[in-house]
Design a binder for these strands. Structure first.
Lengths: 343, 343
DNA sequence: ATGAAAGCGCTAACAT
DNA sequence: ATGTTAGCGCTTTCAT
């Protein structure tokens, strides 16, 4: 049996309340002499406070629940998630919060997931790039559990901390356009994810703004993985879209796409320019390094975490925030070949 | 105030114990009719069981604590940790366990860390490549908290699930030796980490087994990161060790080292062969792809997790297990140049 | 200044 | 078959 404050109380012939106040340094004053004896007894008995019991009373666990996107096996292998988790962990540490990560995939079932989130172990939840149904969002709001969202919130009422997805895509496309590209293709992300939707929207919006056509065959869905990007690129080549620039919704897909292009005997960037999004480590170490858009994922996730903790502590719901993105020009983009140039 | 079983009991004019048994489907039998009414009332009231209260009684939280290595900022960015976490998460999911990840860095302080681990929220702990003091290990054992270790256990009594580090290094070195290499250098990992120590030991052992010299200047410490590998390689070049093959303790350092070599105007593998360890995604996408050793991190971590859960459930402490490694030959290794060959 | 006691929401032993 | 009640370990109100 573990040592409890009652053991300390018995040993010192004082009441448990005094022990509790001595251990917590308040709120009721405890004479220094008593305090010292309590602390010493605690040390001798090797006492460890039971936080579960404490949180039953205080109703606070000082623990934040993290819900990764599209809960599936091997969740931790996505560079995006890794950076988001790092940001959450950094901020949680500064704010003295612990993290429970919800990796119970069967909980993709909304009802079960709500059960996990609302079972009293966490004070609030951070959703990372979720694809939440409107119903789930509503139930979550009704439950009163403080929540925030890293990435675009799928529905009203969930404070959102996201990169400027459309703006980022505009940056790469302006860069490609300035180089002379006029025929673009897009490898989109998982169609149920809101950031993927926003990036695709940015692609279409730019073409519209330049009065360029945007035939349906110039867009193909990937799944944000290298393999998905490689397959999507193969599909584009098969379609013979004639695009000189491939705008990918993230870096992993760009790496995969570049691999397909190179395996087909084409050169990047001489024959085809490729761009990514996220500035993941992969994009910088492949040959050629990939032109991409950096978004401050770690800061975004940290800001979301701080906002969540403020919310838990009773402050006003934070305003959603959109973070700026930056163009990172590297060697995977160049002028299209002369004979492909459209005057 | 949240809905409790008492609310359900009051509403149906029955006792809380009946509600509890109905909700849990036992152990006391509850007539089907009553059960149905309870379930319906629970649904109507939107009742959610409070697991904190339950775990106070049962003493089980069905939650596992995960302690990452060398707790520091941005922990999640290490590919090794990502794979280990994936394995833990996969198994935890299958075994219906939740995960709390200990990212409270200040807890690097042993006493504080023990406090976190023993505050009642987790049923057991998984240490990933820890650098635990002997004292910490002893206290942990004394506490009775079930623990296992992914990687070599730093001390007796902690069941360990690790790759065959020495064997893996032997595999790459036999490969290099067969190619004709006779002058080797080693970029070691963080000297306080046991896997790093074992790999370095493997390097020295192989040289000894071939009666080759192992001058101290042929080994330099890195920190398992790309930057660390790049710096370590720069140091090796400065020392002019004349090594034709660089054996790195992991892939990130191999990528960094290769970058330094190429930036110095040397070619891989023509001028210098480089090998990694872990088969991380990076090693496969750089140019040239890096010859490495694959270890089944995900399976190792999953096995450790299963063993921990068995331990929590009162079974015998699991035996430590060493997992085989495999050589993955890629393009970063080749015969040394003729004029460098030692007859 | 400090002790006694009431719970937090739940399970399980004890009654009936 | 089912109701009553004693805790789990702790914080906090109420007495003294």
């Amino acid at each position: 049996m573990a040592v409890t404050i009652k053991d300390i109380a018995t040993r010192l012939n004082i009441s448990v309340s005094t022990v509790s106040y001595a251990l917590n340094g308040g709120p009721r004053p405890v004479p220094e002499a008593v305090r010292e004896r309590v602390l010493e007894a605690a040390r001798e008995l090797n006492y460890r406070p039971n936080r579960v019991a404490r949180s039953m009373i205080t109703g606070r666990s000082h623990t934040i629940g993290v819900v990764p996107p599209g809960i599936t096996h091997n969740v931790f292998l996505s560079p995006y998630l890794q950076h988001a988790l790092s940001g959450v962990a950094n901020a949680a540490n500064d704010l003295h919060q612990d993290l429970v990560i919800f990796t119970r995939f069967e909980a993709a079932d909304t009802e079960a997931m709500l059960g996990y989130l609302l079972d009293g172990r966490v004070d609030g939840a951070i959703f990372i790039a979720p694809s939440l149904s409107e119903d789930a969002t509503r139930q979550l709001a009704a439950s009163g559990l403080p929540c925030v969202c890293v990435s675009i919130a799928p529905h009203e009422g969930l404070p959102s901390f996201s990169p400027d997805n459309e703006g980022g895509i505009r940056l790469v496309m302006e860069h490609l356009f300035a180089l002379g590209h006029r025929r673009f293709a897009h490898i989109a992300g998982r169609p149920e994810m809101d950031d993927a939707i926003a990036r695709r929207g940015g692609f279409e919006a730019f073409l519209r703004s330049q009065s360029l056509p945007c035939p349906p065959e110039s867009i193909v869905n990937g799944d944000f993985t290298m393999e998905g990007g490689a397959l999507a690129m193969a599909e584009l080549l098969r379609r013979g879209s004639g695009a000189t620039a491939i705008v990918c919704a993230n870096d992993e897909m760009a790496v995969g796409a570049m691999h397909t292009v190179q395996a087909a005997g084409l050169r990047v960037p001489e024959d085809i320019s490729i761009t990514g999004f996220d500035m993941s480590p992969y994009s910088g170490i492949v040959q050629p390094p990939i032109t991409t858009v950096s978004q401050p994922v770690i800061e975004i996730a940290a800001a979301a975490t701080s906002a969540l903790v403020a919310l838990v502590e009773g402050q006003e719901p934070p305003a959603s925030r959109v973070f700026p993105t930056e163009l990172v020009v590297r060697a995977s983009t160049a002028r299209p070949q002369e004979d492909l140039l459209i005057p």
